[in-house]
Simulated scan of single mutants.
Amino acid sequence: MTYVYILRSLQTPERFYVGVTGDLRSRLKRHNAGEVSHTSKFAPWEIKTYVAFSEEGQAHAFERYLKSGSGRAFAMKRL
C-alpha cells in the first residue's frame, strides 16, 4: 500500500502538509522528530486525512493533484 496523507500542524493549525509514503506511522514520527526540513518548524503534526492506494503511480498522481490549487480547495472542503 502507498498512502497519500494530509498533516495539520498542532502548533499552527492553519498549516497543512501533503505527502506520500509506504509507511505512514514511521513517516509521521519523522515529521514530528524534525527530520523533514519542510515540516520541522511547524511540528508537532497530526494526521488529518489519509488515503491508501494499491498502485504507487495513482498515489503520486493524487498527491500532485492535492498540491495544486484546485486540489487544495478540494482537500479543505471535502477532506
Rank of each mutant, 00 (worst) to 15 (best):
V51A: 07
T39Y: 08
F16Y: 06
Q58S: 14
G22Q: 13
T39F: 11
M76H: 11
V18P: 00
G57K: 11
K77F: 07
F62I: 02
R15N: 13
G57W: 06
H31C: 07
K29C: 09
R8M: 12
K77Y: 06
E46P: 00
G71M: 01
S70F: 12
I6A: 11
G57N: 14
N32G: 04
H38S: 15
S37C: 09
K29Q: 14
S37Y: 10
Y3W: 08
Y5R: 01
Q11N: 09
E35Y: 10
R25Y: 12
S9L: 07
A61K: 07
E14G: 03
P13V: 10
R72W: 09
V4I: 11
S68V: 05
M76I: 09
M76Q: 12
G19I: 02
T12K: 10
M1C: 14
V20W: 02
A75M: 04
E14P: 00
H60I: 05
S68H: 01
T49P: 00
R78L: 11
V36D: 06
V51S: 03
L10M: 13
R78D: 08
V18A: 05
E63L: 01
I47L: 07
F42R: 11
S54W: 13
Y5K: 01
Y3D: 02
I47T: 05
A43W: 04
E14M: 08
K41T: 15
V4N: 02
R64N: 09
V20A: 14
F16L: 12
Q11V: 02
L10I: 08
A73S: 14
W45R: 04
R8K: 15
W45L: 04
K41A: 15
S68D: 00
